[in-house]
């Protein structure tokens, strides 16, 4: 392990431990790491957007590729900065409306065609299939679960009478699903901790033998 590699590992270890130190209590090392992290996250975007969007998608095709009409999205992009000047901030609405309108145009059918229909289709299964009683039972459970969940989230009408009973069943289903979510979330969070501890034990503590 070279000197520069050891230095890099120690830099990573310092910032890792500085952030973990918050678990004990707030302190200057944590604050420093937190603020540097925020700055790097913002600064990281500049080079990326400049390179991948402004140069590759706007400047090069417009100047060298003959796509002169790209000055329109270029202007719309610059209008976004009008938000920084209260008097002219309304101009940024045009750019925002363009992004919103286009995204809405994509969403309108892809959400229905790509999510609603396939999910509904797979809920409507024939009960008398070859998979036997267990599969049929599962299919019934799924149908009841989907309908009761949708009813629970349907807020336009008071949850009383039949609607109330179905919504109640929906809550049971939701509790089971959220429980599963919690179980999985524990695994997810622990995985991330394992990643950091793995670094500290294998790389950082491992570097001690190289140094001393």
């Amino acid at each position: 392990m070279s000197g520069i590699e050891i230095f890099q590992i120690w830099v990573m270890a310092f910032f890792t431990l500085a952030l973990f130190s918050f678990l004990y209590k707030d302190n200057p090392a944590y604050k420093l790491a937190e603020h540097i992290f925020a700055g790097l996250t913002a600064g990281y975007q500049v080079g990326l957007i400049w390179d991948t969007i402004v140069i590759q998608k706007l400047w090069d095709p417009m100047i060298y590729g003959g796509k002169w009409w790209l000055f329109i999205p270029g202007i719309l992009g610059f209008l976004m900065f009008a938000r920084l000047f209260p008097k002219y901030s309304w101009l940024s609405r045009v750019s925002l409306a363009f992004v919103m309108g286009t995204t809405a145009g994509i969403f309108l059918f892809t959400q229905l065609h790509g999510l609603v229909l396939p999910q509904m289709q797979s809920t409507m299964l024939a009960l008398g299939g070859e998979d036997g009683f267990a599969a049929a039972l599962l299919a019934v459970v799924v149908v009841i679960g989907v309908i009761s969940t949708l009813i629970y989230f349907y807020f336009s009408k008071e949850h009383a009478g039949v609607l109330g009973v179905t919504a109640r069943v929906g809550i049971w289903f939701i509790m089971i699903s959220f429980g599963a979510h919690f179980g999985y979330t524990v695994m997810g969070r622990v995985s991330l901790l394992i990643g950091r501890v793995q670094f500290l034990i294998e790389d950082w503590i491992g570097s001690f033998s190289q140094m001393f």
């Binding site: 892809t110 065609h113 790509g114 999510l115 979510h181 979330t185 695994m187 997810g188």
Partner: peptide, 20 residues
């Protein structure tokens, strides 16, 4: 990817995702 690419263009896909 599922709603636009798989549903719209029929490309088969698999997802590896976080536990959350």
């Amino acid at each position: 990817w599922i709603s636009i690419v798989n549903a719209g263009y029929g490309v088969p896909m698999g997802v590896g995702c976080t536990a959350v």
